[in-house]
Design a protein around this nucleic acid. Structure first.
Lengths: 246, 246
DNA sequence: CGTTAATTTGAATTCTCTCAAACTTCGTGG
DNA sequence: CCACGAAGTTTGAGAGAATTCAAATTAACG
């Protein structure tokens, strides 16, 4: 299996135990590996001709812009995540995707994807599961921004990211590398960067967690989970649901 | 076509012109019509045995609860909308659905749905479109709660609801019946009911819109659209995308 | 007609934001 | 290797907005 598919295969593995055949189909579906520099949109709001990608390395953000420049980041994507899967069915993309770091991404066409589903139907269920999981995360972000205080929100954010990164092998038990700026956090959480900074200082001073120099470290994970009321059921990654036939 | 399917067929019609055959399949998929009283969960967070429904009449809300009782409403469903479609693929439902009014809903099993897709593949694309549209709405709500002020948020909310209701024939050009309380609005928009009340008074005094006695009326729709920066592209309902073959 | 739910208003408080500015880090080019 | 500039982080002070608390009024329902 090419290196860039491992995170995706690993993630889908949380939903279904995939056979070698299915893995081969997965590999065939995403062919061209493209590279994008940070800061330049991969997918652009209103764009007609869409493709989807599987992120192979690096991080991206999906976001929407208001006319006065305010930005709401909907989610961040990490290796193994789809980019622009939802917009495949829409007339035009309703959101933007911008690399946070330099990224590598495999292009997948709608034709290849549907073709792959015919050859390996369980793959379709797995991809649909991944899409449902993405939506569940958006819902959880809405809950955070709508009804959680800034401290809870930040704590929840880091815990979710950690769980996701662990699943694809990019985190230790209590830490992970994170290329996001405090502006990124602010725009994802509906806060100002200044306030994010103050909350992070609070976490540091309370020995809860540290977020510095591109690294996030949990010092008191249990207390963080309690504070955030973090229940990762919505990530649905406890064990493969489909172990045998569909 | 049974009366309870008309809104769904009408909604899907915004995506694809459906043949009589496809409409028949649609009808066959949703069989048992069930009635639920207001205030009692139809689908409950953590629930294992899930079914999905098509809402035939009445309104529901999908929401999540925090342990201390705070509530975030993710969306409201109106006739023609699916209830719990996403959670069909998940181990357990990650959210609740509660009727706002007395509702009638047709139960659809995962088996019937998949069976229907085999007989009418374009229906699968249409249902996927509906699911994508739901997700796009959640994203837009996130943008509102995260980055729009209360006035913009409220205005946007009513405009979205109006566009959705028009599509299924439940609104005039400038008004619609709305069974929501100000508590509902507050929990959907991340505000307090008290503040919602004050903003609504502002709208009334500025002759922008009225929301009273179960009815929403737009007095100055153009100004409201400007205020909310409402662009309904994300609802993707301008014209059928699929008019001929897939 | 009486009881409960929903709406409306007021006053005070508490957060979070805005504005301003210093400090740090990091990459680039001299 | 150092200087410089840009981006990101950190801190302070003041303003403003939405919340909380309290209570009156109105509407809805049996």
């Amino acid at each position: 299996m090419p290196i860039e598919l491992r995170p995706l295969a690993r993630k889908l593995g949380a939903f279904a135990v995939l056979s070698d055949d299915e893995l081969a189909v997965l590999e065939a579906v995403s062919r061209r590996l493209r590279v994008f520099p940070p800061g330049q949109d991969v997918i652009h709001q209103g764009q007609e001709r869409r493709s989807a990608y599987v992120l192979a390395s690096g991080w991206t953000s999906s976001y929407k812009l208001l006319p006065d420049g305010r930005r709401q980041i909907v989610d961040f994507q990490i290796p193994g995540d789809f980019l622009g899967l939802r917009s495949l069915l829409f007339r035009t993309s309703d959101h933007n995707i911008m690399p946070v770091t330099r990224i590598e991404a495999s292009e997948v066409s709608i034709q290849d994807l549907v073709g792959g589903f015919n050859r390996a139907p369980r793959l379709a269920a797995a991809v649909l599961w991944a899409a449902s999981r993405d939506e569940a995360m958006v819902v959880e972000h809405l809950v955070g921004v709508g009804r959680r205080g800034p401290r809870e929100r930040l704590a929840h954010f880091f815990l979710e990211l950690h769980a996701r990164l662990r699943l694809v092998g990019f985190a230790t038990a209590t830490s992970f590398d994170c290329p996001l700026s405090q502006y990124h956090l602010a725009d994802a959480l509906g806060l100002t960067a200044i306030h994010v900074n103050r909350v992070l200082r609070g976490f540091r001073e309370a020995d809860l967690m540290r977020f510095q120099k591109g690294k996030a470290e949990f010092l008191d994970p249990a207390e963080l989970v309690r504070l955030a009321d973090f229940d990762m059921a919505y990530l649905d990654q406890e064990e493969p649901l489909l172990s045998g036939a569909l």
